[in-house]
Design a protein around this nucleic acid. Structure first.
Lengths: 333, 333
DNA sequence: ATGAAAGCGCTAACAG
DNA sequence: CTGTTAGCGCTTTCAT
């Protein structure tokens, strides 16, 4: 309900030039204490708020970044997306960046013109959109997806393969040899890398990889249930299962329980994520913690740096380590 | 890597004035077919993209809305937040609105100046922020929170009370009399209304409300587990439980199972949400479906209308109905 | 139907 | 340290 009041009016009231007002707004130090106070009180008196659109146009900076979320079935139920949104959201607040949320779709690419930088929360079926951004001069970082050198795209990812390997190594060291794996959604790189880690651990320990013990899931609970039902038919039943994410791991535990099998007594389970629900089920779940929120925060702050130092084309290729969190869902055999 | 090319350059190439180019961009009909084609090909040739910041400043419209998410523990693991983000996100895409995500915090209120409108995904502890927005002339709609008339705030909410009542009515009609309730987070209005609905159904059927059968949860699985453990000590064990959300309902089902109790044979369960996981557990969960995505989409489109018709101060107070979805988790008694 | 010119509200270079 | 003068890139009267 307030009249549009502009910097000019503030200047008049304070008895200075618009420039000086602008200086105060932008905290440019070269302003007399006296003038600063006059301007500040005028601002307060008039309840003046600078027009951000005008500021941005004049500065040539958008002060915002876009987070593009790949839109595949189930992304909205994933722990992953939640954590990324949270991490980026909180980081943006402290970086004083507006956060634009863009749900990827085939038709509407994000408008590179209106954002200072772009963060991709993984790249699934939106490769074209990524290319589009890369071909512009807008800074861009991809999360949780590695690219090879010549792709020349900055990324910050989790070491899924190593994380998976450590989980399976742990199982092996507990004496397990008949270890199954329920995968995540194979359209994601993370699921692919976790399979690799699983296989690698087996191979390094001279345990033959049996494709029949690798059941495809998609990170959802229903898929985990289906996978477990399939697994249940295998004789002898694996003594341990490395599951693609904690949500699925919990569902697997339930299915086992429904069939009179206990975790870890009958079957040992390791999940992935370190989702808080690990502590919710009947057994505290041993899992591979991946620093999702940290990754997101780091991505945001790196992107911010790239935006500010337009000149230096820094190259960001970061891989974050995971942690095996040992709880109660695995037993020595 | 492209040089900044402006509307002026396009005009020169097309052999028309910048104004005409602008008209083409904005699809203003009064342009010769011939000129339009010239301009369009010039745009394509130069790969010109209008500077959105300049457009917005000139138009005086932001073409964006902010979604503010209350930041309380667990919001990021909630089905609710996911659905709202999805609904608003998809709606914004088709409305051609940029979506700003703002995680509410005590210190940083959203900047009313830079957005065309504001959507609140519930109001929890961010009343001050809401007031701040309301005192501006920026259109604003609150989701899932009802206000009384004189508060003069537009909202679009779910009829939680009625939804809860119907769920409990259903249980009663199946013959249940000893019905417990595990609540959601009591700092939310939805949880409060669901309790009311629960009590109302009991009262209308002359079943005394026992406070001991109302166990506080917070919408999280761990809280549901704790609540169920508490409930398990009550003799006689309730024959039915109305649970505050599906996630909790599923956890309750697990706890029951771990204790040798089957759903629905021993205990009937009704959830709330119609989360896809309803179909994942050992029994398909009977639940109260709330149209979250629709609510979000509607809120976005309503807000957009308010933004476009700056003049007419429409009053939006919408309550959306729920649906009882009957599956397999309740039995006749 | 089209173009010239005047903003939108602020910042930045340049004098002083 | 401060003010003047140009823009930032586009839209929009207002003539023509």
């Amino acid at each position: 309900v307030s009249e549009k009041i502009r910097i000019e009016e503030v200047a008049r009231v304070a008895g200075v030039s618009p420039t000086t007002v602008s200086r105060v707004i932008n905290k440019i130090p070269t302003v007399t204490e006296e003038n600063r106070i006059k301007v500040e009180s005028a601002i307060r008196k008039l309840n003046f708020k600078p027009n951000i659109l005008a500021q941005r146009l004049a500065k040539g900076r958008a002060d915002n970044i876009a987070l593009v979320i790949p839109r595949y079935e189930g992304i909205f139920f994933s722990f992953y997306a939640n954590q990324i949104i949270r991490g980026v959201g909180v980081a943006c607040e402290s970086l004083k960046l507006d956060l634009l949320l863009h749900l990827s779709s085939e038709r509407n690419f994000i408008d590179v013109n209106s954002v200072g930088g772009v963060l991709f929360a993984d790249v699934i079926s939106n490769n074209e959109e990524l290319k589009n951004v890369l071909s512009s001069d807008v800074p861009c970082i991809v999360m949780n997806h590695r690219f090879n050198k010549d792709a020349n795209v900055d990324f910050i990812a989790i070491d899924n393969k190593k994380g998976a390997k450590e989980a399976v190594d742990y199982l092996i060291h507990l004496g397990h040899k008949n270890i199954a794996h329920i995968t995540g959604n194979m359209i994601t790189q993370s699921a692919q890398e976790r399979i690799e880690g699983y296989k690698l651990a087996l191979q390094e320990n001279n345990i033959p990889v049996k494709e029949g013990l690798i059941i495809k899931g998609d990170y959802s609970r229903p898929s985990a249930r289906r996978a477990m039902v399939t697994l249940l038919k295998i004789k002898p039943l694996p003594t341990a299962i490395f599951v693609g994410c904690d949500d699925m791991a919990q569902e697997v535990t339930s299915v086992l329980l429904e069939n009179g099998l206990k975790v870890p007594d009958d079957v040992s389970i390791v999940g992935f994520d370190d989702n808080p629900i690990c502590l919710a089920g009947s057994v505290a779940l041993t899992t591979v913690r991946q620093p999702l929120v940290e990754m997101a925060a780091k991505a945001a702050s790196l992107l911010n740096k790239m935006i500010l130092s337009k000149t230096a084309k820094t190259s960001t290729k970061t891989i974050l380590a995971t942690d095996l969190i040992i709880r109660d869902s695995c037993r020595q055999i």
